[in-house]
Design a protein around this nucleic acid. Structure first.
Lengths: 145, 145
DNA sequence: CATCCTTTCTTGACTCGTTCAAGAAAATGC
DNA sequence: GCATTTTCTTGAACGAGTCAAGAAAGGATG
């Protein structure tokens, strides 16, 4: 996980003002890959004291727009965020407990897949979600994390 | 679009009781591919008179569990449903207006893609969403459907 | 370092898709 | 038909996320 100074620099590079909530949220996303918003809120509060949930939502949107974090939202899940950006990797999602793991892109570019018929759409990304069951859920506990 | 008799038969084949709300919702999903729930509610009401929104939610869940319809939910969108099932095709989603079009699977099987490292997950499906802009939004109108 | 302007954060209310719960109604099996 | 089970109606509720207005903080400038 990057140092505070590096996180601060990445904010400046993205032309975003450096604030304690932003550093805390960005660090939280680095520390908790694929975490839901409320986890990030708690993590940010643990780092800087009180932070409003609204501030975290705003920060996450700003970071997402700036490309510093990526928002993912599998069906039947709330929004999740990750700090691994720029390599267009994909995800495996467990149907049992909702846990997520990273999967490297099969090709390595964006888009890494080509649609057979694009219907005139200008495609800039191919997002792949592999659905299945994680080792724990396969072993028999259907709802643990 | 299948006849009423065929829709009824598909319900029976799935061991689901045949009711007017179910026939109406199933027909609505066939008639409105990728429609949101409220569109399906209106369509169902147009077909059979008053139907509670709760009944539609229940029916959609039952149909989804039975495999008669497929639920899709791209990020930043509410749930959508389609009746084309069993061929594991994929979707192009417009970042501008949210419109969705079908894309045939690149390989034709489920899963049609193989993860490079599955982290021990037992994968049964690979869902692909191509993100881009539809012809209308590319042409300049950024928020029309 | 002081000031000003802009962006960001706090507070609190609110929206809306979806779900929960209990009783009424309808579908199937006998 | 009748009983049993499932499904539908009604109405309330939940919760992730958004909206809005004012207070606070960042950072450019002199």
């Amino acid at each position: 996980m990057p140092s505070d100074a590096l996180l601060e620099q990445s904010l400046r590079d993205a032309a975003l003002r450096v604030t304690r909530p932003r550093l805390a949220v960005l660090a939280a996303v680095h520390a908790h890959p694929h975490a839901e918003t409320d986890v990030l809120i708690e993590a940010a509060r643990g780092a800087v004291g009180e932070v409003s949930h609204q501030a975290v939502y705003d920060v996450l949107r700003a970071l997402t727009n700036a490309g510093l974090v990526r928002r993912i939202q599998p069906s039947n899940s709330v929004a999740r965020y990750e700090a691994r950006v720029g390599d267009n990797h994909h995800h495996v999602v467990c149907r049992g407990c909702g846990s997520i793991a990273d999967v490297d892109c099969a090709v390595g570019e964006t888009p890494c897949l080509t649609a057979t018929d694009d219907h005139g759409f200008v495609i800039d990304e191919a997002e792949v979600i592999y659905w299945g069951r994680c080792p724990a859920c396969t072993a028999g506990s259907p709802a643990s994390s």
